[in-house]
């Protein structure tokens, strides 16, 4: 792993990101923030609905927003990889970056769990109204995970680095 990080930091791609940084870095940051709002908005809507709020929204109808959330996640993964490629050695020594990755994995595992559960449930169930306890847990866990991603991501340039 350490060897891979060193290789990436010394790669041409990494040098390119740093050399292009007068415009590439701010552009990717802007896209990263646009993706953040989109992802937090849709994930937050899903999570609160799963927790039993917003009961007049048919639970299944929210899946109509799913592709936009996936698109926003793809945008933030791509721009995040640009940051990581450009400054690998700064991120891998930062515990807040590792915490962010951990929260991302929690959010991902949680989303997969939810998709599995909702596929198994019959189509008549949970259109509007209250949700079962397992949905509430999944929603709360997801909300905590995404907030963890945001907080760690925003704090990591200020704390935990080697600068």
């Amino acid at each position: 792993m350490t060897a891979y990080f060193a290789w990436l930091q010394n790669s041409q791609a990494s040098a390119w990101v740093r050399a292009e940084s007068p415009w590439l870095w701010p552009l990717c940051e802007t896209l990263h923030f646009i993706g953040l709002a989109l992802l937090l908005g849709i994930a937050g809507l899903m999570d609160f609905r799963l927790m039993g709020f917003l009961r007049s929204i048919p639970l299944r109808a929210i899946t109509g927003f799913r592709n936009w959330a996936v698109g926003a996640f793809g945008l933030n993964l791509a721009t995040g990889l640009v940051f990581f490629t450009g400054s690998t050695n700064q991120y891998v020594v930062n515990p807040y970056w590792w915490a962010k990755v951990g929260f991302l994995m929690l959010a991902g595992a949680n989303a997969i769990a939810f998709e599995t559960i909702i596929r198994r449930s019959s189509s008549e169930t949970f259109t509007t109204g209250d949700t079962p306890a397992v949905y509430k847990c999944i929603g709360a866990l997801s909300l905590v995970a995404w907030l963890g991603v945001l907080i760690c991501g925003r704090l990591l340039p200020f704390v935990g680095g080697t600068d």
């Binding site: 709002a37 937090l40 908005g41 849709i42 937050g44 809507l45 945001l150």
Partner: peptide, 9 residues
């Protein structure tokens, strides 16, 4: 994220 995210939805 809350303001712009909810507005975007």
């Amino acid at each position: 994220g809350v303001l712009v995210g909810a507005n975007t939805v």
